[in-house]
Design a protein around this nucleic acid. Structure first.
Length: 770
DNA sequence: CTATGTAAACAAC
DNA sequence: GTTGTTTACATAG
């Protein structure tokens, strides 16, 4: 597929059969795996049917009302279990029929309904039911061309209970499953999956891809360490070709394929061999040396020792972990089916294009084999859209929580960033030194990315950190000295409590702090105390060091913060507090806010480092250009391209979200849709959160009642209690675009009603919703 | 320069 | 021999 530049992919995708309702969202279901690209036919049909019928008629439960203030715009309340695709198809037909003179824009919002999805668990977040949501914000989806899929967040499997972490847009494929899985974010912001998902989750149900992904993930996870070789099948064909992923990326895939997100060296070897036959059959034996070399070299890989000290597990520093999984990345290219740009490689690396989103253009492939069947997806950067991070999953609705915005913003930012710049790295690598940040789950200073991402998985962090424990029960950790070696430097380095990080010995910078060991290598510890460190340090040691020798030492992670975007809220840094301490996801309380800043964190982190990140991964250097440093993210992964940014969804943040608001009436809020921005960036610039802007064409100012404050942070925060954000879709049949939007719902009841007089009481229009 | 990939020397088990 | 850490070199971008 190519993408036309403007045409929203989504629409295209629409054609595909999405799984409908039912979605499979659940994990359970699972469909058989299908190739990613396509969906099942059957479904497709179904959708068609729906569509057709729909042209005018829509499934039961769907409510359509004219938007009070926006011309040619109708608000469509879709039951959760409805097949969103069908609805979209029908609406599109309807809009086309109407042409410019009639309703040609539709704002879809979930109104509850039987949830198809997963039954069970719902995250707290969900509450989808609330209907109240209305308007606003934006998003991005779409338009852009390349987008691939946005994933919606929740993995089916994810348990609500666990906080889901939604990974936000990025898919979280990983199921969290029991563990925390992290979410994986996909890096690709572009995924469209969300569509599918929406259905399931929010609107409809199903997302095809996700499922697929999940499946894969499952495999991975299940197999965790060892999977059956077959799993990777996708590739198999290409077996003999060298995978387009760097060792770093493969290691991440391997580690992230496990629930615990840790793996022994041997298992890493095994996983790689199983998934990439090339290494099993063709590569020289030296590849293992390279794996080890990469593990030692990159700070993002942290070695943890079991409690008893007998077993070493390699983990990915939470701050740097983008939770990449093979599925996310890889897609078989088929000759026939070209994947689209999307897949392209991410490569960031390779492609110089700055802007191009990877998508399209790129494809690049690796030099090597030139084409590999596997395509690397994109990674980190997002393409245009950033997905929203809300946990959309289930319901579209975002949680009302106030904070939400931030996260979103963050996410957006990140994505954007990515876009703009070249690759943004979302997940920065943290410099170790600097890092401090990361790990902390709870306390820590912010973790930037993680937060963003999703750390949500909160569990992850903790888990990981904890990891020690589990493993060997027996041992346990001795607290004190656990067997492990931790050498971590004192706080500074990694703040995170949990994780262990390795330290670097070398860092001079850090050196200072840490002490002791002559050479510290990494350490990990289990928990470290919570010290948070300040990242201030940040120094970059990095290479800068030439100090070090020239050789490369470990690549440090950058502090995420740095990268992070403060952007979102551009404004203000001030506003944001950086959360230094953000609570963990778990904490919940205010997740969002936290998240938000998390990004900002940058502060803490920031990487001084040269702009370029020292880090290893690296996507590209380019990053900078675009955005200055504000966020520069570092991509951790360098993998050939794959770095995926870690983007993490802020799930946690959301997760916690309260459902709190009950539905109340909201008053109005006009919707603002998001225009399709070409670039996410635009969105951002445009004030992401600002509700004000109206995407849709016109937007009437009036409409915008939304708070929108300009100031980002605040804004978000600003949402008053009576308001909530939720996610919705804007279908513009004039442009054939489908965009995600955040709806800001306000509840009129409250005195405060920000909206003001103007506001509209949606309840009046769509009682069902509320 | 940076990111990667390789190879290899060493050290600790 | 395995696992880890580090150096060196080489190469592509």
């Amino acid at each position: 597929m190519k993408t036309s530049p403007r045409r929203p992919l989504i629409l295209k995708r629409r054609r595909l059969p999405l799984p409908i309702q039912n979605a499979p969202g659940e994990t359970s279901g699972e469909e058989p795996k299908r190739p990613p690209a396509q969906q099942e036919p059957g479904q497709a049909q179904a959708s068609k049917e729906a569509a057709e019928s729909s042209s005018c008629k829509f499934p039961a439960g769907i409510k359509i009302i004219n938007h009070p203030t926006m011309p040619n715009t109708q608000v469509v309340a879709v039951p959760n279990n409805a097949n969103i695709q069908s609805i979209i198809t029908a609406l599109t037909a309807k809009g086309k029929e109407s042409g410019s003179s009639g309703p040609n824009k539709f704002i879809l919002i979930s109104c509850g309904g039987a949830p198809t999805h997963p039954p069970g668990p719902q995250p707290q977040a969900q509450t989808s039911n609330d209907p109240k949501r209305t308007e606003v914000v934006t998003e991005t989806l779409g338009p852009k061309p390349a987008a691939r899929d946005v994933n919606l967040p929740r993995p089916p499997g994810a348990l609500p209970g666990q906080r889901w972490e939604s990974c936000g847009m990025w898919s979280a494929r990983q199921r969290a499953g029991g563990e925390a899985a992290g979410c994986t974010l996909d890096n690709s912001l572009t995924n469209i999956q969300w569509l599918g998902k929406m259905s399931s989750d929010g609107l409809g149900s199903s997302s095809i891809k996700q499922e697929m992904e999940e499946k894969e993930n499952r495999h991975l996870e299940q197999s965790q360490v060892e999977e059956p070789p077959g799993a990777s099948t996708s590739w198999q064909d290409s077996a003999s070709e060298r995978p387009p992923y760097s060792y770093m990326a493969m290691i991440q895939f391997a580690i992230n394929s496990t629930e615990r997100k840790r793996m022994t060296l041997k298992d890493i070897y095994t996983w790689i061999e199983d998934h990439f036959p090339y290494f099993k059959h063709i590569a020289k034996p030296g590849w293992k040396n390279s794996i080890r070399h990469n593990l030692s070299l990159h700070d993002m890989f942290v070695r943890e020792t079991s409690a008893n000290g007998k077993v070493s597990f390699w983990t990915i520093h939470p701050s740097a972990n983008r939770y990449l999984t093979l599925d996310q990345v890889f897609k078989p290219l088929d000759p026939g089916a070209p994947q689209s740009p999307e897949h392209l490689e991410s490569q960031q690396q390779k492609r110089p294009n700055p802007e191009l989103r990877r998508n399209v253009t790129i494809k690049t492939e690796l030099p090597l084999g030139a084409r590999r069947k596997m395509k690397p997806l994109l990674p980190r950067v997002s393409s245009y859209l950033v997905p929203i991070q809300f946990p959309v999953n289930q319901s579209l609705v975002l949680q009302p929580s106030v904070k939400v915005p931030l996260p979103l913003a963050a996410s957006l930012m990140s994505s954007e960033l990515a876009r703009h710049s070249k690759r943004v790295r979302i997940a920065p690598k943290v410099l170790l030194a600097e890092e401090g940040v990361a790990p902390l789950p709870a306390t820590g200073p912010v973790q930037e990315d993680r937060l963003l991402l999703g750390e949500g998985l909160s569990p992850l962090l903790p888990v990981q950190s904890i990891k020690e424990e589990e493993p060997q029960p027996g041992e346990e950790t001795p607290p004190l000295g656990r067997p492990i070696k931790v050498e971590s430097p004192p706080l500074e380095e990694w703040p995170s409590p949990c994780l262990s990080v390795k330290e670097e010995s070398s860092h001079s910078w850090e050196g200072s702090s840490h002490s002791p060991t002559p050479r510290p290598k990494k350490s990990y510890s289990g928990l470290k105390s919570p010290a948070r460190c300040v990242s201030e340090m940040l120094v970059i040691k990095r290479r800068e060091g030439r100090e070090m020798s020239r050789s490369r030492r470990k690549q440090h992670l950058l502090p995420p913060c740095l990268d992070e975007p403060e952007l979102l809220f551009s404004e203000g840094p001030g506003a944001s507090q950086r959360a230094t301490e953000l609570p963990l996801p778990a904490e919940s309380s205010e997740p969002a806010s936290q998240l938000g800043y998390s990004q900002e964190e940058g502060g803490p982190f920031k990487t001084p480092i040269k702009e370029t990140l020292p880090i290893s991964s690296t996507p590209s250097k380019s990053v900078l250009p675009v955005t200055p440093e504000s966020w520069r993210l570092t991509p951790p992964a360098k993998g050939g391209g794959l770095d995926f940014s870690p983007v993490q969804p802020p799930q946690a943040a959301f997760g916690p979200l309260p459902d709190s608001l009950g539905p109340t009436d909201f008053s109005t809020t006009p919707l603002k849709s998001i225009p399709l921005f070409d670039s996410p960036r635009e969105l951002l610039n445009s004030e992401p959160f600002d509700l004000t802007s109206d995407p849709f064409s016109t937007s009437s100012p009036s409409d915008m009642e939304v708070p929108k404050p300009h100031s980002p942070g605040p804004e978000v925060a600003g949402l008053s209690a009576n308001r909530s954000l939720t996610e919705g879709l804007v279908l513009d049949t004039m442009n054939d675009s489908l965009s995600k939007i955040l709806l800001d719902i306000s509840f009129p009841g409250l005195e405060e009603d920000p909206l003001g007089p103007d506001s509209i009481n949606w309840a009046q229009f769509i009682p069902e919703l509320w």
